[in-house]
Computed example of a mutant assay.
Amino acid sequence: MLKFGPEVFISIGLHVLIGGLLLVSMNFSSPVIPVHAPMPNFTPIEAVVVDAKTINDQLQRIEDKKQAERDKILQQQRDEQRRKEEAIKRKQEQERKRVAEVKRREQAKKEEEQRQQRELERRAAEERERKAQQKREAEQRAKQEAQRKEQERKEMERLMQEQLQAEQAELSLRARQRQQYVLTETQKYQAMIEARIIQNWYKDDSMIGKTCRIQIRLSSTGFVISVRSLGGDKNVCVSGEQAVRRAGEMPMSKDPSVYNELKDITFLFKL
């Protein structure tokens, strides 16, 4: 609904006033007076003649003013409409920006969550790889340690085997040396015992070609414990036993091994 200001009502009043003046001008500007009639006795009234152009100009000004008022009202309405539209646009733009900002924040949040998730996955992958590497290194160290221990064991076994062989060789050598020593000592003392017995054996020509085997048992000091004939010529056996008894205490080694070889000896008497 259009609203009119006081100027409009003033304009309407002026139009009514001008119309009235025109009517008055038309009725009283040219009065008809009879020729022979006497002039009435009245006071003359000044008539106001209104020029048509002036009226038109006045009307045009009024119309222009009215049009200006209408244009002003229309401009105000357009300005108001524009302000409303601009306000709506600003509100829509603000809403669009708000929605865009919300979406941007949601997208940024989503991207940040995705980045954090990727970072967690990357760290988890690195941790798994680190543990796998540690496991591989531990297994490698364990394998190397096992190989080292196996090599040490084999080396120890080799050294022990060599040492055992060396000890066995040493024992064998010592045994051979000992055996040789015992044999030599036995032979030496046996020869000394035989020499002692021969020195105390009395022989005669009747024993030529005859023999007698006599077993002699000695103590560790060389003392003759027993003498026994094992068979042979009687005379040779009797003279042999007498020779052993006359020899008395025999030469004897203090080495038990040599004594064991000499404690029971068999002497062959032969002429």
Results as ranks from 00 to 15, higher is better:
I208Q: 13
L218P: 04
G222M: 03
T211C: 00
S229R: 04
F223Q: 08
Q215G: 00
I216W: 05
F223C: 00
V244G: 14
C237G: 12
G209H: 08
V244E: 15
R228M: 10
A243D: 14
R246H: 14
Q215K: 08
I216H: 07
K234G: 10
E249C: 05
D233N: 11
G232K: 05
G248P: 08
G222K: 02
L218S: 08
A247E: 13
I214S: 03
E249P: 07
V238S: 14
K234F: 09
I225W: 01
G231T: 02
G222L: 04
M250I: 07
C212E: 01
C237M: 11
C212N: 02
N235I: 11
V224F: 03
R213M: 06
T221D: 06
L230R: 06
G232R: 04
V236N: 09
T221R: 03
R217A: 01
Q242H: 13
I225G: 00
I216Q: 10
L230S: 06
K234S: 14
I216M: 12
N235H: 12
L230Y: 01
V236G: 08
F223I: 03
I216D: 09
G222T: 03
G209R: 10
C212G: 08
V236I: 12
A247N: 13
I225K: 06
R245F: 15
T221V: 03
S219Q: 10
S239G: 07
M250V: 05
G209M: 10
